[in-house]
Nucleic acid binder design. Sequence first.
RNA 1: GCGCCCGUAGCUCAGCCGGAUAGAGCGCCGGGCUUCGAACCCGUAGGCCGCAGGUUCGAAUCCUGCCGGGCGCGCCA
Length: 558
Amino acid sequence: MKEKIDDILQKTLKKCFEKGLLKECPLPTYLIEIPNNNDHGHFATNLALTLASPQRRRPREIAEIIADNLEDKGSIFETVETAGAGFINFRIRPEEWHRLLIEITEKRDRYGSIDRGTKEKINIEFVSANPTGPLHLGHGRGAALGDTICRILSFRGHEVVREFYINDAGLQIRILGESIYSRWMQKKNPAYPFPDNGYHGDYITDLAEDISTEVDLSSMEPEKAIEICSKKGKERMLAEINNDLGLFRTQFDVWFTESDLFSNGLVERSLKEMEARKELYEKDGALWIKTSDFGDDKDRVLRKSDGQFTYFASDISYHLDKHGRGFSKAIDIWGADHHGYIPRMQSAMKANGIDENWLSVILIQLVKLFKEGREIKMSKRAGQYVTLRELLDEVGVDAARFIFLTKAHDSQLDFDIDLVKKHDTDNPVYYVQYAHARVCSIFKKAEAEGISIPSEKDLVLDTLTLDEEISLIRLMEEFPSLLDEICASFDAHRLTYYLADLAARFHKYFNLGLKNSENRIVTADIPLSQARLILADAVRIVIKTGLNLLGVNAPERM
RNA sequence: GCGCCCGUAGCUCAGCCGGAUAGAGCGCCGGGCUUCGAACCCGUAGGCCGCAGGUUCGAAUCCUGCCGGGCGCGCCA
């Protein structure tokens, strides 16, 4: 609809220029927006305000000229008014809105989607938890955001690959093994030392138990046993992580293993490439990359003087490999505590001749957990945290996914677990799901009355005249462009707000019928009932599609 | 010290590519079920949009400085 209005405005301006009503000038950037006040019409533009300065005339005058000369051949407007400082307000004819209802109910679950001829291949890496412990709430937030962005991108016609990067080449896997081994030894000898920076969670003891029933640790040298514990511990943690993500309805397409970068020689190869580009140098026995030439604060070490590679070295190699796999765009979702890595990563990409827009990093602020009114500081090393699994057991997948997306990703999220547990019916997700279930219920009622949606929809739709009805349609019209905006900004939380808004307007509409039976959806007036069923069906479709994109169920009964 | 994020109703947060009277949920107070689902709806109260400047016809929104909270600044992982 905005496109249609914009088209009309541009044609109108052209005409005004030709007729000399306005001076020829480059088009300023103007907005066509949905006013928050219903008296201001369905759409409004500030075009005349933005033209005031180049035209050197009063905005109000310009608005009048534009309004009087509108090139609306298809006549989509019911009224056009100038108002305020120089806004032009448009009210769209009901027929246009009715047409949209037909579109929604015919496209059904494809409403809002796009089929593109050539799909853009996008890689999204998220969660990427170290396999040294179970997933916690922060990972849940990342999973909810990443998976939802993937669902939306793919719905909007892009090819998406979900990727999980397994950090398994560093010291932490070794420490995991030492922790497990120590817990096993402590069963017989409580005095056996526990590693200083070991992992304290109870799951370590469980791992020790499991592994020791599978292999005979007592027959091995400690070094060999620790190695086994590392390997088996990592495998078991990965299996558990994968399982928990599955419960959370997040499936990854690619599990990329850091240690493979070394065993396949990819790290060495990428170093040679950078060497050839003359981006590396040796200093103090270490190998450095000149990231400071590309925007970083300082140069970074890739190979330490002891010969070990830094994480940064394998991270670069990993991203180069990703780039080599032909993605036109890569998105990384990181915890906000890694924000300091963005400049160096972007610099390293530039140093390798990769466009700086290729990689986008989305930061998610950390999740603060509150229990019994107190904040619980989470720490994997100290073994104190609430796992994603526990949360899912308490509140369910639907509520968890929805709640994680009720805040902007760059805002900290205070998660009061008692609140979500106790007041689970106050959860906004139920509010939205209830609207869906309610429509389904209405359709059962209609069926019982022998009323159904006719094949010739346009014959009954002109009975839809209530403001509440038009306002619902108007909101549903925004759905596709909202999805597009989310694709560009990654603000997935806007979808949860949108659905809550749509549900609210539907509940409000439904309640009109409680006061006045003429306003019920299923009434004695058959054509009117049929038209309202079409409207209710469209609401059901958009809510279901939206919930689907959030990875949340749309139940027919609750 | 430097960098990034945040500061909006009692609480948790939307709104922030400048626009018309600043919103929601929860909480408080008061209403609404003989007929489509009350997991709902309606109403009341509650705001120096952290502070101070600046840009603009117009600032919660953009710029600068300050205050407060979080995070990050290793040849750690």
